[in-house]
């Protein structure tokens, strides 16, 4: 039953991937200029003959129909092609950048989700008191700030003034660390970008969790649990918090795509060599194969995250498994 569920979800994701693939092609087609124009723009020189030769070489001279067909058949055979901008196979370029983004996005989702659950739970527990107001208001303030600005503030405070954390990047260059030290180094580099990304989305989870906990506190089963003489800690954790997690988890899945989008900005601010920065580079260089692959990779990441979240959801709420089969 579980395998069939996963199979179903992958099957449902296919049209999403297809639509994205077609969309990417035509969006880039609508943009002015191609990879050769972009190449000449950066080198600053070139002649018509070379341009024509390059276009011939990269298959850019064909008609739009032919190019679309080539593009789609390549995708169908999972041949992602050759990056014009990096002069390397696209898969290689992506493989070098994807793990960083996954790490950034994954930890951000975990941090904002768990922090949101914790703070929202506390806010609901202290409903109507200063703690509640403090949590709700500050989460909203952070939510109102643009991520890049929050990131810049973080850099100025923690990296420049206090010098607690590194400025940017994903590891100390040339430090040649290993084992635990290397891990710690990565963590130190991740703290600011992860917190920046997490905090911008935090308000959403805080408010959701707070509302769900308030509702759970008034629910029949919380009252019944009290009537059975259970200690307060059990009532709050098992009979209120567990059912209250459901809407938060749903929202985590829905926001996974937005977080991937947000990481483009964050990666640029913190100079992190991830998928986000790569897509910026691919757009500026009109590198169609690379950009298509990035978007496909992003779609896949979002689809996979959502499948994982749905699996977690089924674990949390037994009613779902029975109705969706």
């Amino acid at each position: 039953m579980l395998l069939r569920f996963i199979g179903n979800r992958v099957w449902q994701a296919l049209p999403v991937v297809l639509i994205v693939a077609v969309g990417v092609f035509f969006l880039l087609e609508m943009a002015e200029g191609d990879a050769v124009d972009a190449y000449f723009a950066t080198t600053g020189a070139g002649d018509a003959g070379l341009a024509a030769q390059l276009r011939e070489q990269y298959g850019l001279a064909d008609s739009i129909g032919t190019r679309f067909l080539t593009y789609m058949t390549r995708l169908a055979t999972l041949d992602l092609g050759y990056s014009v901008a990096f002069s390397r196979p696209v898969t290689e370029v992506i493989a070098s950048r994807l793990p960083v983004t996954l790490m950034l996005m994954g930890t951000s989702i975990l941090v904002s989700g768990s922090l949101g659950v914790l703070l929202g739970g506390i806010a609901s527990w202290r409903r109507g008191r200063p703690t509640d107001a403090g949590i709700t208001v500050s989460a909203l303030v952070f939510n109102a700030m643009p991520g890049f600005w929050l990131g810049l503030l973080g850099i100025i405070l923690f990296a420049v003034k206090l010098r607690w954390l590194p400025l940017g990047g994903i590891g100390t260059i040339g430090a040649d660390l290993s084992g635990l030290e290397s891990l710690l180094d990565t963590v130190r580099h991740l703290v600011l970008p992860v917190m920046t990304l997490a905090i911008t989305y935090l308000a959403l989870y805080v408010r959701l969790m707070r509302a769900a906990m308030n509702e759970a506190a008034d629910s029949g089963w919380a009252l019944a649990a009290r009537a059975r003489g259970l200690p307060e800690s059990k009532i709050v954790l098992r009979h209120m918090a567990r059912p209250a997690l459901l809407p938060v988890v749903t929202m985590l899945g829905l926001k996974a795509g937005a977080m991937l989008g947000g990481s483009v900005v964050i990666e640029t601010v913190f100079a992190i060599p991830g998928l986000g920065r790569l897509s910026y580079e691919a757009v500026t260089q009109r590198d169609l194969p690379l950009l298509a692959a990035i978007l496909l990779a992003g779609t896949l990441v979002v689809v996979i995250v959502n499948i994982l979240i749905d699996l977690f959801y089924r674990k949390l709420d037994p009613r779902i498994a029975d109705t969706t089969g």
Binding site: G220, W221, L223, A227, R228, G229, R238, D317, P318
Partner: peptide, 28 residues
């Protein structure tokens, strides 16, 4: 409460935590 006095409610659906098996619920 829960020792000398046991209580049952109107809507049995609402008084049982939906995410626990009924065995776990009574176990607790």
């Amino acid at each position: 409460t829960g020792r000398t006095v046991g209580m049952i409610f109107q809507n049995p659906g609402a008084s049982l935590n939906p995410v626990l098996t009924v065995g776990d619920l009574i176990d607790e």
